[in-house]
Every structure is written in C-alpha cells, then in structure tokens.
Amino acid sequence: MRHIPEDELHAYLDQGLSRSQCVEIESHLAGCASCQGMRDNIAALRDRTTALLARLAPPRSFPTPFDTIRRRAAIEVSARRRRVHRAAWAASVVAAVAFGWTASQIADSSGAFRTATGSPAAAPLAASLPVTPVAAVSPAPTLARPARGESNGRRTTRRPLVRKVAAAEAPRVSVPPVIAPAELELSTIDIPAAGDFELDGMWRTMSWVGAQAETGNQLPHIDGLPVVQVQVQAGKQGKQPLMVVAQQLVSGEVIRTIEGPASDVSHLLARRTMSDPDPKVSSTDSTRPGTVVYQGVDGSMAMQRGDRMIAITGALPPDSLLAMIRRLNAALRSK
C-alpha cells in the first residue's frame, strides 16, 4: 500500500492540490492510520510555523488611505507619460528636421556645406557665434574665419570667400551624400539668459504659402504639426533668408524651427529666454564631420554645419537628436 508522501500532505493541507487529488488523498486517509498520524503531525508543524512567524509581525501597521496611494500613483503616471511623450516628440521632431536638413544638404552639395565638410572649422567658429558680433570674431586659421573677419557686416562676401577657400583645400571632390563617422567634437555655446523670443530687424509675418513661395519651399518645419506662425527675414544680397516657423505640439507647447545663417540663428537663440543664467551646452558631432550640435539648457537644440544653422526650440534630448541623425545617415549610406 502506497502511503502519501510528506510533501503531498503539506500541499493537501495548504489547499495546493486539485480537487481530484484531494479526493484521492482523503479516500486513502480514511483507511490508513499511518498517514492520518503523518497528517496530524504535519498539521501541527504547519500551525507551529504559523505561530512562530506570527511573532515576526511588525509592531504596528496603519494603512495609508487608498486615495493617498492613488494620488501618488497619478503623479507618477503623469510624470511617466510626460517623459514618454517628450521622448516620442523628440524622436519625431528630430527625425523630421534632421532628415529634411540632411536631404537638403545632400541636394545642395555644391553649396556652403562644402566648406565644412572634412573641416574642423565649424566647431571653433560655432563656439563664438552666439555672443560674438560678426565683426568681433577674431581671426583664426580656419577656413571660414577669414571670411567672417573681413566681413565687418558685409555678409555678402562671406559665402563666395568661404567657397573659394574651401575649394582651395578640399576641393574638387563633390561632397558625398553620406560621410563616414567622425570623431566627437565637444564645444560650448554661451547662451545668455535674457529676454523673450524677440525678433529684431525687419521681419515679416507671412502666410505659409507666401513664405514657401518666397523661400523656394525651404521653410524649416515639422511635417504633421499645425503651423502657428511663419516669420521670414530676407537675406541680404543673395544671402539665405532667416526663417522661423512656429508649430504647435498636441500638448499645446509651441516649438520653433529656425534655419538660416549660423550667426543669425545663434544670435536669435541668444535672445531667447533661458532658464539658466549660465547655460551650457553639450555639443557633439554627428556622423557628419563639421556638424556641431548644441543643446540649450531649456532644451533647445541647434545644429550647425558650415555657416548654416538649424535650431529647434523645445525640450529635445540631445541623444535623440544624435541617434536620429546617425540612423538617417546610415539609412542614406545604405542607399
């Protein structure tokens, strides 16, 4: 006659067996005194264990009202959603802008980007841009610097000069669509904390259609977001216009995408409200040599390549921007 194993009796007493197993055990117990004794011992052991563990109860326990728990959970859920929402928007915004910009640069392979390609000039130049008037930039042995040093406000000469110097050093090879990853560049940008988003100079608030027509469909924007405002400052004597497109996120936050000459964009950024009086910025290169990425303390982002800069105001994680640029470049490289 097979007796009931000890562990099965434990499970039986703990109600850890199926109904059919229980029936089987009970029928055996009815005719087996040995197993009955074993069951009683296990029941006693079980009760003893429970009694011993009961001594280890905490001295007191005052359950917090569940509403308090619920409020805490609501706060955490809200914070988590904000993080997810922000990350999602960062990814989409960065994807849209980085892709559009990369594509425009590829298409414009004969433009000013040639000056920055493969040149370290962009980083030191960018570092001084936001706070330094164009005329005050000290000369440096860089490709673009002579043009800026000589400009003295005459920006019309910058592009031809830059292009000329660049042509002398890097030359004749047209810019490839995608460039091999370069080393990281770190730079800082000194963005002062003052003022609202102010646009000085001659700005025109335009309709989307009108601005697109005037800029040759070059308005920086994020596809799929409602456009709140378009402002354009005409470039002087052939210079690229400075464009600011304000769009609204579903959260209600308005972000602005700015594109134009680097000095103008950085100057514009410098006038924006910054939360930190001593904002700093992390800047790193993307996979494209000569591209410098800035992050303002308020979450604004800017990418500079040569004398062109595109910026997005809004809380965008820099990692999202860099990751997206790398991904896009990798995608383009595979084509």
């Binding site: 000890e6 434990h10 499970a11 850890g16 003893r48 264990t49």
Partner: peptide, 20 residues
C-alpha cells in the same frame, strides 16, 4: 514547479521549527 512548492515548504517548515 507547482509540485515543488510543497516539497520546499515541507523542508522550510521543518527546518524553521528545528532551528528554533
């Protein structure tokens, strides 16, 4: 495994009481 829970519990109870 569910079946091993009973075995483990049996051992744990016995050892707790014996140690005590």
């Amino acid at each position: 495994a569910v079946g091993a829970v009973g075995t483990t519990l049996a051992r744990a109870r016995r050892r707790l009481v014996e140690a005590h």
